[in-house]
C-alpha cells in the first residue's frame, strides 16, 4: 500500500510563496493498493489534480471516504472530473447529517445547487453510489477494508482505518483530544472524566497495530489554549497519542492556514530535537509526497 498527500492544509486553501513546500490545497489523501486500486480520503481542493490525472486512464473506479462534511474536506468534490464522465464508477462514503436526517448523498446535491454551481447533480454522468457510514462500521472493498471510528469534532467526523496488502493506516479526519468540561471539585468532574478516559482508551485500542497514523495536528500547544473546542489537535498531543498506541510512524497534517513552510520546518526541528519522542518516526505531511508502507 502507498499513499500520496494531495492536500495538507486545514480550513481553507492557502496558496502562495510561503506554502509551496507543504502545500496550499485542503485535505485529500490518495491511497493505492499494490495492484493500484484506489481509495481517496477526503475531497478537499487537493482532489482536483488527482481527478485530472485519473481522467487520462478511464474508466475510473474509486472509493471516496469523506471524514466529515466541513467545507475544507469536500471543497474539491465538484471539481473532481471523473464525476462528469460516463463509464466511471465512484462510491462516495461519509457520515450522516443527524440534524437534517439526511445521508451523504445530500452533501454533493447541496454543493451543486443552483446558487453555488452551474451543474446539477442529475447532470453528473458517472455511476455514483452513496453509502452513509456509521460508527465502527467496516466496509469490505475486496482489495481493502475501511473501518470507521467517531472522532471529536464539531460535526459528525469518522476517522478511517484502511487495511490493505497486510498494512494499516489510520486517518483521523479532524480531531480534538477528548477533554473534561468540568473543573476538579465540580460534582460531575469524575463521572465526565470516566467517560473521557473510556473514549481515549477506545481510540488507543483502535489505533493499535496501525503502521502509519495520518493525523490532524493543526495547532501548537500555545495556540490550542485559545482554540479549545474548535475540533483540532496539537503536534504534541498527536505524537503522544501515537506513542501511547504504539504506532511507529506519524504524518502530521491539516496544517494551520496561516503557517508558513519555514514555520512548519522550525516546529518539526524543535519536536525532533526535544528528545521526547524516542523511537517515534514523524514528519510534516507535504503535498505531492508519497509514503510507501
Amino acid at each position: 500500500m502507498r499513499l500520496r498527500f494531495r492536500g495538507t492544509r486545514g480550513s481553507v486553501p492557502a496558496p502562495g510563496p510561503d506554502t509551496v513546500r507543504h502545500g496550499g490545497n485542503t485535505t485529500c489523501i490518495e491511497v493505492r493498493s499494490d495492484a493500484d486500486d484506489l481509495i481517496i480520503l477526503d475531497a478537499g481542493t487537493g482532489i482536483r489534480s488527482l481527478g485530472m490525472e485519473l481522467m487520462e486512464e478511464r474508466p475510473v473506479s474509486c472509493h471516496i471516504f469523506i471524514s466529515h462534511t466541513h467545507w475544507d474536506h469536500i471543497h474539491g468534490l465538484p471539481f473532481f472530473l471523473p464525476l462528469f464522465a460516463t463509464g466511471n464508477a465512484i462510491t462516495l462514503y461519509g457520515p450522516p447529517d443527524p440534524l437534517s436526517m439526511t445521508g451523504i448523498e445530500a452533501v454533493l446535491a447541496k454543493q451543486l445547487e443552483y446558487p453555488h454551481f452551474p451543474v446539477r447533480v442529475a447532470e453528473l454522468r458517472a455511476d455514483i453510489d452513496y453509502r452513509t457510514l456509521t460508527d465502527r462500521q467496516t466496509v469490505d472493498l475486496g482489495f481493502a477494508t475501511v473501518s470507521t471510528l467517531l472522532m471529536n469534532h464539531p460535526a459528525m467526523d469518522f476517522g478511517c482505518k484502511v487495511r490493505c496488502d497486510g498494512r494499516t493506516i489510520f486517518f483521523t479526519g479532524d480531531h480534538e483530544p477528548f477533554g473534561n468540561i468540568y473543573d476538579p471539585g465540580d460534582d460531575d468532574y469524575e463521572e465526565y472524566g470516566r467517560i473521557v478516559d473510556e473514549r481515549n482508551r477506545a481510540l488507543i485500542d483502535f489505533l493499535r497495530g496501525v503502521d502509519v497514523l495520518v493525523a490532524d495536528a493543526q495547532y501548537t500547544e500555545e495556540e490550542y489554549r485559545s482554540r479549545r473546542g474548535w475540533g483540532h489537535s496539537t503536534f504534541e498531543r498527536t505524537l503522544a497519542l501515537a506513542r501511547d498506541a504504539g504506532v511507529g510512524r506519524v504524518c502530521l497534517t491539516h496544517h494551520e492556514t496561516t503557517r508558513t513552510d519555514d514555520e512548519l520546518d522550525a516546529i518539526l526541528k524543535r519536536l525532533r530535537a526535544s528528545g521526547e519522542w524516542g523511537g517515534l518516526t514523524f514528519d510534516m505531511a507535504r503535498e505531492g509526497e508519497m509514503v510507501i508502507l
Binding site: 443527524p98 467517531l150 468540561i181 463521572e191 465526565y192 467517560i195 473514549r199 473546542g229
Partner: peptide, 15 residues
C-alpha cells in the same frame, strides 16, 4: 455527559 463527550458542543447545541 455521555452524549456531550461523544457529540461535542456544536452537535449537541444544534440538537
Amino acid at each position: 455527559n455521555h452524549a456531550s463527550v461523544y457529540l461535542g458542543l456544536n452537535t449537541l447545541k444544534n440538537v
